[in-house]
Simulated assay, not measured.
Amino acid sequence: MLEQHPADTTIIRRILLIGGGVCLVVAGVCLFLINTQPLKQASTPVDEDVQPQFQAEKLSAISNLGVMVNEVRPLQQTTRVVASGQHSAEFRGTHFIQENLNNYSLELFITSKEEIIQDFLDKRADRSKFIYLRLAAEHQPERYVLLYGNYAGEADAEQQLQQLNLALPKTIHPRTVQFKDYTDLVNDMGTEELSNQKLYSIELKPAVIPPPAIVPKVSSASVVAPVSHALQTTVTRHDREGNVVSVTRSAGLEASVPH
């Protein structure tokens, strides 16, 4: 057999070591290229293709935005309220306004206190010609307006305005108005409606109270000692043929019977 020289063995080991290092470096470079190249290719379609498609779908979904505005009707205020407080007989609400939409009246003044109108009416002998309303507007405090007369035409109201003599302060300037101008501001029940409602009452009738029962007093002299009677029990036994076999008598309890 041929013996291998030690120098040759060292050279072979170095060559293998260098070759292994070169292979390791090449494998690392290939792995790096494989991991980085797909990310660069995948990032390009996201910016160019996917995002425009998403925007297109979003715009198509809201193309009919605003259609419901024409289909949904606005809320209508159909519930009437009963204003708190004690109103005078001249207080009117929506029922009166609906019946006199085309009629005219004279607006004397508007105030925020109902007591001012009530004090004014208390001093008038012709208060049957007056009416007043409560005006309730959104984002505004409630007000009360005093009106005079109910006229079928504007000309009649203007003529009455020229002849009006109510001794009002000079700062008050009455004007002609139509009842339908207060349609959106009045949502009350008038005094005439409340007075027509049926009232239910409970009629209480006096009832006779029976006198208390009188219990007679029992004196000690009228108490009689009870008499005791002994009770006996008799047991008779029969056989199958009905013949008497035995008769047993025993004393029972004693019962007290008063006389």
Rank of each mutant, 00 (worst) to 15 (best):
K180G: 00
Y144F: 15
G149I: 02
P212Q: 11
M189F: 15
P206R: 07
A157H: 02
L147N: 06
A152D: 10
K170F: 04
Y151T: 01
I172G: 08
E192P: 04
L135N: 05
K129Q: 14
R237Y: 14
E192C: 00
K170L: 07
K217N: 07
E138R: 13
E138A: 15
V177R: 07
P206S: 10
K180L: 01
H229L: 08
V223Q: 08
Y144L: 02
A225S: 09
L146V: 03
D181E: 15
L147S: 03
D188H: 03
Q162V: 05
R240I: 10
Y182S: 02
V244N: 08
L146M: 10
A137K: 14
A152R: 07
T171N: 14
H229N: 10
S219M: 04
K123T: 13
Y148A: 07
A207T: 13
S222N: 12
L133R: 00
R134L: 11
Y200R: 06
Q163L: 11
G149K: 02
E241N: 10
S228P: 06
N196Q: 13
T183S: 11
E193T: 09
Y200I: 07
V186C: 04
K205T: 07
E241I: 00
D239R: 05
G190F: 01
L231Y: 09
G242E: 02
A167T: 08
K170M: 06
H173I: 14
E142L: 06
Q159D: 13
M189Y: 15
R175Y: 03
K180N: 13
Q159R: 14
D239I: 02
A136V: 14
S219H: 11
A167R: 14
Q163T: 12
E154R: 11
A207K: 12
E138L: 14
D126V: 00
L161D: 04
T236F: 05
H139K: 15
S195E: 08
L161G: 06
L166R: 05
P169G: 08
H238M: 06
T233Y: 15
G153Y: 07
I131M: 12
K217T: 13
Q197C: 05
N165F: 08
D156C: 00
R237K: 12
Y148E: 06
T171W: 04
S195T: 11
E154M: 07
R124W: 10
F179Y: 14
V244L: 08
E158Y: 11
A155Y: 01
I214F: 11
F179P: 04
